[in-house]
């Protein structure tokens, strides 16, 4: 049966990894939300160059693997003289990658707000920036909360790539314990449980939000 001594003997490692996974996910969430919102606004803005930059960024990043982005930060940046700690390189990679998806989510949210509102706001004297900030974004955010929740679940799961670059996350420590004890089966089950502790409540919450949103329409 499952050998629980593998869990208790290495509890400090699991917990350190769990804590770092949580930190990486939260930091990347905040970062990618900010970056994603910026790119979403760029992409629908009337200023051509901004629009192009955002479009290229979103389309390119969405179509390449996360691990490639993370490797770029980890071993690519040092090639041009910038050395980042594994944890930071990994979290930045996660942020840049996730921002592309969040930008699309938010853009969809903004486009869901009827055009008439923008026109009304603009004709009542608000600038483009003001219209976005006070009229469109607050409403769009409400629509995008459930998909954002899904992005956060993805972030927690995706943060496991930190394990590949010695990012000290749950996957990394789990992998070390597995390699040291040879009891891989049980160790990975425990690692899975730790991930589920984070993701299952989140996904229950997201489906609750989705149901509520569907009901209020």
């Amino acid at each position: 049966m499952i050998d629980f001594s593998i869990l208790f003997d290495h509890m400090d490692m699991y917990l350190e990894g769990f804590w770092n996974t949580l930190q990486a996910s939260l930091l990347a969430l905040v970062g990618s939300f900010a970056l994603g919102t910026l790119f979403a606004i760029f992409r629908i803005s009337p200023i051509r160059p901004l629009k192009w930059i955002a479009t290229v960024y979103v389309e390119f990043v969405r179509n390449i693997p996360l691990i490639l982005v993370v490797f770029l930060f980890f071993v690519g940046l040092p090639a041009i003289g910038i050395v980042l700690e594994p944890f930071i390189a990994g979290t930045l990679g996660l942020t840049v990658y996730t921002a592309a998806f969040i930008a699309e989510t938010i853009r969809a949210g903004i486009l869901a707000i009827p055009k008439g509102q923008t026109e009304a706001a603009r004709s009542s004297g608000l600038t483009y920036g003001q219209t976005m900030r006070y009229i469109i974004l607050p409403q769009a955010i409400k629509v995008v909360i459930p998909p954002m929740g899904n992005q956060f679940i993805n972030l927690v799961k995706n943060s496991s790539v930190l394990g590949v670059i010695a990012g000290l996350d749950l996957m990394y420590f789990g992998d070390l314990i597995a390699a040291d004890t040879f009891v891989t089966f049980d160790v990975y089950i425990f690692v899975a449980v730790f991930y589920l502790i984070l993701t299952l409540p989140l996904s229950a919450f997201v489906s609750y939000l989705e149901r509520r949103l569907a009901g209020s329409r």
């Binding site: 799961k157 496991s160 394990g163 996957m171 990975y188 899975a192």
Partner: peptide, 12 residues
């Protein structure tokens, strides 16, 4: 399964 990292499933 949907709530687990794919990387973990590969290791598994």
């Amino acid at each position: 399964i949907r709530n687990l990292p794919l990387l973990l499933i590969i290791f598994f």
